[in-house]
Amino acid sequence: MQIFVKTLTGKTITLEVEPSDTIENVKAKIQDKEGIPPDQQRSIFAGKQLEDGRTLSDYNIQKESTLHLVLR
């Protein structure tokens, strides 16, 4: 499925993911596309910070959902 990741600069990245993917996985995909190390990424969805060990389905993130990426 496709999800979108919006950065603070307003750029939107499209990722191909599975509901079973962990947040860690997703951060690795963002690193592949953007070169941002996962330890600098904070992902926010529906106002909640997403934890690395959880999966997209844990957070009820579905296709075409938009995550927000904040850098630390």
Results as ranks from 00 to 15, higher is better:
F45E: 02
T55S: 08
E24C: 06
F45H: 06
D21Y: 07
G35D: 05
T22M: 05
S57P: 01
S57A: 14
E16K: 09
I36R: 04
R42I: 15
Q41W: 15
Q49P: 12
I30W: 02
Q41G: 06
D39I: 10
M1R: 02
K29E: 00
I30N: 01
H68G: 04
E18I: 11
K48R: 12
I61V: 08
S57G: 09
G53E: 09
S57Y: 09
I30D: 01
G35W: 05
S65M: 11
S57V: 07
D58S: 14
D32T: 11
R54V: 06
D52H: 05
F45K: 02
Q40I: 11
E34W: 15
D21F: 07
E51G: 04
E51N: 05
I44L: 13
T7M: 15
Q2F: 14
T55C: 02
D58P: 00
D52R: 03
T66N: 03
E51L: 11
E51S: 06
A46P: 03
T12R: 08
K11T: 08
Q62E: 10
D21H: 04
G10S: 02
D21W: 12
R72A: 13
K33H: 11
H68S: 06
L71A: 10
T7R: 05
L56D: 01
L50K: 01
R72W: 13
P19N: 05
D32H: 10
R54C: 10
D39S: 13
T55H: 05
N25K: 14
D32V: 12
Q31N: 11
L56T: 01
K63C: 04
Q62V: 12
Q62A: 09
K6I: 14
T66F: 07
I13F: 14
N25S: 14
V5H: 00
K33R: 10
Y59H: 02
E24H: 11
M1I: 11
S43R: 05
I30M: 04
Q49D: 14
F4C: 03
I13R: 00
R54Q: 08
E64G: 15
V70I: 12
T22G: 02
V5C: 04
A28N: 11
Q49M: 14
D21Q: 04
K27C: 09
K11F: 09
D21P: 00
Q62T: 14
E18T: 13
I3H: 01
I44D: 03
D52K: 02
R54D: 04
L8K: 09
E24P: 02
T12Y: 10
F4T: 05
K27E: 03
G53S: 12
Q49W: 15
D52I: 05
N60A: 08
E51D: 10
K11C: 07
Q41E: 06
K29G: 01
E24N: 08
M1K: 02
I13L: 09
